[in-house]
Protein backbone atom coordinates (compact mmCIF):
# COMPACT_ATOMS: atom_id res chain seq x y z
CA UNK A 1 0.00 0.00 0.00
CA UNK A 2 1.62 3.30 -0.97
CA UNK A 3 1.54 6.48 1.05
CA UNK A 4 -1.19 8.15 -0.99
CA UNK A 5 -3.48 5.20 -0.63
CA UNK A 6 -2.89 5.07 3.12
CA UNK A 7 -3.62 8.76 3.38
CA UNK A 8 -6.94 8.29 1.64
CA UNK A 9 -7.96 5.26 3.68
CA UNK A 10 -7.40 6.84 7.06
CA UNK A 11 -10.26 9.20 7.58
CA UNK A 12 -10.12 9.14 11.37
CA UNK A 13 -6.98 10.27 13.15
CA UNK A 14 -3.92 10.40 10.97
CA UNK A 15 -0.60 12.03 11.49
CA UNK A 16 1.25 11.72 8.24
CA UNK A 17 4.67 13.23 8.34
CA UNK A 18 8.08 12.44 7.05
CA UNK A 19 9.24 9.12 8.51
CA UNK A 20 5.85 8.00 9.82
CA UNK A 21 6.17 5.03 12.18
CA UNK A 22 2.55 4.01 12.49
CA UNK A 23 -0.99 4.73 11.36
CA UNK A 24 -3.59 5.35 14.04
CA UNK A 25 -7.26 4.57 13.73
CA UNK A 26 -10.07 4.64 16.24
CA UNK A 27 -12.94 2.16 16.03
CA UNK A 28 -15.54 2.91 18.72
CA UNK A 29 -13.33 3.32 21.79
CA UNK A 30 -10.63 1.05 20.48
CA UNK A 31 -7.31 2.50 19.31
CA UNK A 32 -5.72 0.59 16.44
CA UNK A 33 -1.98 1.22 16.11
CA UNK A 34 -0.87 -0.07 12.72
CA UNK A 35 2.89 -0.33 12.98
CA UNK A 36 4.75 0.46 9.79
CA UNK A 37 8.31 0.07 11.02
CA UNK A 38 10.36 -2.03 13.44
CA UNK A 39 9.24 -1.55 17.04
CA UNK A 40 12.66 -0.79 18.52
CA UNK A 41 13.89 1.90 20.91
CA UNK A 42 14.24 4.48 18.13
CA UNK A 43 10.65 4.16 16.92
CA UNK A 44 9.22 3.45 20.39
CA UNK A 45 9.55 7.07 21.47
CA UNK A 46 7.23 8.60 18.86
CA UNK A 47 4.78 5.68 18.83
CA UNK A 48 4.43 6.01 22.60
CA UNK A 49 3.87 9.76 22.45
CA UNK A 50 1.31 9.60 19.65
CA UNK A 51 -0.57 6.69 21.26
CA UNK A 52 -0.75 8.40 24.65
CA UNK A 53 -2.08 11.61 23.15
CA UNK A 54 -4.97 9.64 21.63
CA UNK A 55 -5.54 7.40 24.67
CA UNK A 56 -6.15 10.40 26.94
CA UNK A 57 -7.65 12.74 24.34
CA UNK A 58 -10.10 10.31 22.74
CA UNK A 59 -11.25 8.35 25.80
CA UNK A 60 -9.75 5.09 24.57
CA UNK A 61 -10.69 1.82 26.27
CA UNK A 62 -8.93 -0.94 24.31
CA UNK A 63 -5.78 -0.95 22.19
CA UNK A 64 -4.76 -3.12 19.24
CA UNK A 65 -1.16 -3.17 18.01
CA UNK A 66 -1.11 -4.46 14.45
CA UNK A 67 2.24 -5.87 13.31
CA UNK A 68 1.25 -6.59 9.70
CA UNK A 69 3.57 -3.80 8.54
CA UNK A 70 6.30 -4.45 11.12
CA UNK A 71 8.70 -7.38 11.06
CA UNK A 72 10.86 -6.74 14.08
CA UNK A 73 10.46 -6.01 17.75
CA UNK A 74 12.86 -6.08 20.68
CA UNK A 75 12.57 -5.45 24.42
CA UNK A 76 11.84 -1.77 23.75
CA UNK A 77 8.59 -2.89 22.11
CA UNK A 78 7.70 -4.90 25.20
CA UNK A 79 8.12 -1.68 27.19
CA UNK A 80 5.81 0.24 24.85
CA UNK A 81 3.05 -2.38 25.01
CA UNK A 82 3.37 -2.87 28.80
CA UNK A 83 3.21 0.88 29.28
CA UNK A 84 0.01 1.26 27.23
CA UNK A 85 -1.47 -1.80 28.99
CA UNK A 86 -0.95 -0.08 32.35
CA UNK A 87 -2.81 2.96 31.04
CA UNK A 88 -5.99 1.15 29.96
CA UNK A 89 -6.20 -1.69 32.49
CA UNK A 90 -7.54 0.55 35.26
CA UNK A 91 -10.59 1.42 33.20
CA UNK A 92 -11.22 -2.21 32.30
CA UNK A 93 -9.52 -1.95 28.91
CA UNK A 94 -7.75 -4.71 27.02
CA UNK A 95 -4.71 -4.87 24.78
CA UNK A 96 -4.29 -7.13 21.76
CA UNK A 97 -1.68 -7.74 19.08
CA UNK A 98 -2.48 -8.82 15.52
CA UNK A 99 -0.59 -9.86 12.42
CA UNK A 100 2.53 -10.96 14.34
CA UNK A 101 5.17 -12.88 12.41
CA UNK A 102 7.13 -15.80 13.86
CA UNK A 103 10.01 -13.81 15.36
CA UNK A 104 7.78 -11.16 16.95
CA UNK A 105 5.62 -13.98 18.32
CA UNK A 106 8.69 -15.54 19.96
CA UNK A 107 9.51 -12.25 21.69
CA UNK A 108 5.97 -12.09 23.09
CA UNK A 109 6.06 -15.70 24.24
CA UNK A 110 9.51 -15.39 25.84
CA UNK A 111 8.59 -12.19 27.67
CA UNK A 112 5.41 -13.75 29.08
CA UNK A 113 3.37 -10.86 27.68
CA UNK A 114 0.68 -13.23 26.37
CA UNK A 115 -0.38 -13.67 30.00
CA UNK A 116 -1.82 -10.16 29.93
CA UNK A 117 -2.42 -9.34 26.27
CA UNK A 118 -4.44 -11.13 23.61
CA UNK A 119 -3.36 -12.30 20.18
CA UNK A 120 -5.59 -12.39 17.09
CA UNK A 121 -4.97 -13.07 13.43
CA UNK A 122 -6.50 -9.86 12.13
CA UNK A 123 -7.56 -6.43 13.38
CA UNK A 124 -11.18 -7.33 12.57
CA UNK A 125 -11.01 -10.41 14.82
CA UNK A 126 -9.72 -8.29 17.69
CA UNK A 127 -12.23 -5.47 17.18
CA UNK A 128 -15.12 -7.96 17.09
CA UNK A 129 -13.94 -9.65 20.27
CA UNK A 130 -13.46 -6.36 22.12
CA UNK A 131 -16.84 -4.98 21.03
CA UNK A 132 -18.68 -8.08 22.23
CA UNK A 133 -17.39 -7.59 25.77
Amino acid sequence: MDKQERKRKNTTVMQLREGVKADFEIVNRCLVVKLLEDLDHHNAVSIREQSDKLITGKNIKDIIFDFTGSEFMDSSGIGVIMGRYKKVIFTGGKVAVTGVNHSVDRIFRLSGLYKIIHKFETIDDAVKKFNNN
Binding site: S75, G79, M82, L110, S111
Partner: peptide, 14 residues
Amino acid sequence: ELERSGMGFSFMEA
Protein backbone atom coordinates in the same frame (compact mmCIF):
# COMPACT_ATOMS: atom_id res chain seq x y z
CA GLU B 1 10.89 6.00 33.77
CA LEU B 2 11.92 5.33 30.16
CA GLU B 3 9.55 2.33 30.04
CA ARG B 4 12.42 -0.07 29.70
CA SER B 5 11.13 -3.63 30.12
CA GLY B 6 14.27 -5.01 31.73
CA MET B 7 14.35 -7.85 29.22
CA GLY B 8 17.43 -6.81 27.22
CA PHE B 9 20.04 -9.13 28.71
CA SER B 10 17.44 -11.91 29.04
CA PHE B 11 16.83 -11.77 25.28
CA MET B 12 20.56 -11.74 24.55
CA GLU B 13 20.99 -14.80 26.76
CA ALA B 14 18.00 -16.58 25.27
